[in-house]
Simulated scan of single mutants.
Amino acid sequence: MLKVVIVLLLIAVVISLFTGLVFLIRDGGRTNRVVNSLAVRVGLSLTLLVLILVALWHGDLSMNPTPYH
């Protein structure tokens, strides 16, 4: 379940990135929609980072060990 949430947040970040690009092309930077899209993307990225760090701290996620141990 946790991995599904992480993938969904990553997809939301990519969607926000492309909507910001569309707003930049369409508006030419005259409106605040690009800035709002950036704020959403930063918020989603911070949420994703905190979720991953908390999951690592609780042991729900684990780092892959190197194959040469």
Rank of each mutant, 00 (worst) to 15 (best):
L2W: 12
K3Q: 13
V4A: 09
V4G: 03
I6K: 00
I6L: 15
I6R: 05
V7P: 05
L8Q: 13
L8P: 07
L9K: 08
L9W: 09
I11L: 09
A12C: 07
V13C: 07
V13H: 04
V13L: 05
V14M: 10
V14N: 01
V14R: 07
I15Y: 09
I15S: 14
S16Q: 10
L17A: 13
F18A: 02
F18I: 14
T19L: 13
T19C: 10
G20I: 08
G20Q: 06
G20C: 09
L21E: 06
L21M: 12
L21N: 00
F23D: 10
R26P: 00
R26W: 12
G28N: 07
G28Q: 11
G29F: 15
R30Q: 12
N32P: 00
N32M: 11
N32G: 09
R33N: 15
R33D: 13
V34F: 14
V34M: 08
V35H: 07
L38E: 07
L38N: 08
L38F: 06
A39H: 01
V40P: 07
V42L: 13
V42E: 05
V42G: 03
V42A: 13
G43M: 12
G43V: 09
L44Y: 03
L44M: 01
L44C: 03
L44P: 02
L44N: 01
L44E: 03
L46E: 05
T47H: 02
L48G: 01
L48D: 01
L49H: 03
V50W: 11
L51T: 06
L51P: 06
I52H: 02
L53C: 07
A55P: 00
A55T: 04
L56W: 05
H58Q: 15
G59Y: 03
G59H: 06
S62R: 14
M63S: 10
M63W: 07
N64Y: 04
P65T: 15
P67R: 05
H69V: 11
